[in-house]
Amino acid sequence: MTYLRPNFRHPDLPTNELGYTKKNYEGSLSTLCAGCGHDSISAAIVQACFELSIEPHKVAKLSGIGCSSKTPTYFLGNSHGFNSVHGRMPSVVTGANMANRDLIYIGVSGDGDTASIGMGQFVHAVRRSLNMTYIVENNGCYGLTKGQDSATADVGSKSKKGDANPFEGIDLAALALQLGASFVARSFSGDKEQLIPLLKAAIKHPGFAFIDVISPCVTFNNNPGSTKSYEFVRDHLQATGTVDFVPMRKEITTSYSAGTSQEVTLHDGSVIHLHKIDDKLDIHNRRSALDLIQEYKSESKILTGLLYMDKEPTDLHETIGTVHKPLRSLQEKELCPGNNVLQNINASFR
């Protein structure tokens, strides 16, 4: 089916391959606090989808509950969205994905939504290798319920009330690696250069892609003493490299000096380039990623960038052997065996 492209367009607005402007990927006005890290992530998602020339309606965006989970309203206004219940986005995406394997699924969650109430569902979505992009907008606190510590808050980190967190923080990227996620990255909401290419690579990845995005809560968790405040994160960031994503169809124009870049071919033939500041990391080696995360953590540094990518990920549909056609498109004649067959079944019960 073909559709007419929108004909009223600001002449200056650049368009992508499909003829859409960035406006076609935007959502409603955000109601989050001014300066909230989550808004920067929404902007990065808009930019990534625009640059990837994805048809907006071919994306389904789903979330749990929290400030972070509210954000799908603020990007991709032409896509179907689903603000589900607290911590349960993974199961809703699983069902949606089973129904139609042809859409792109972007799940947005918070650190409370994922690392506490939704830990079980997160773990099992990773384990099933669901084909989706799973973004945690990680502020180390519960924004929407006014700033309680979350399970990703680092031990010793100070909340707005001034109390130091007595519990060990959960590193969701490390956990995803251990659970066998086929794409694991970490970034920072304020670092567009790094985040946009990572998002593009994650969306193109035909398996479970996880991005832990540190996203400071300006209202409840941007105080000195919090390890997820802007200042702290900026000072302690250590990138594995900047990633640039170039779809196959275009000539690769950027030049990379040989010693510092690593070329990664994605499943659909697209290529991402990883500029390694630290060449200790081999992004196809799960163990080395885990080791390096630990190493930097011991120096109070946060390792960002693409941490791991499996070139041949599996997908749940392959594992269970469903047809290529979306299940939701199957018609009655393919689904209902009819009365003759039923009469034979009856006979087996006599």
Binding site: A60, L62, F82, S84, V85, R88, P90, S91, V92, V93, T94, G95, A96, N97, M98, A99, N100, L103, G120, Q121, V123, H124, R128, L316, H317, I320, G321, T322, V323, H324, L327, R328, L330, E334, L335
Partner: peptide
């Protein structure tokens, strides 16, 4: 290949979540 998908969920919360996701997306689940 299968004209159906069966997912043994991690618990009943996930099971009904999957059912809701699939129905939302147009499959009978």
């Amino acid at each position: 290949k299968q004209n159906f998908a069966i997912v043994q969920a991690e618990d009943e919360l996930a099971a009904i979540g999957m059912v809701i996701g699939a129905n939302w997306n147009g499959a009978r689940s």
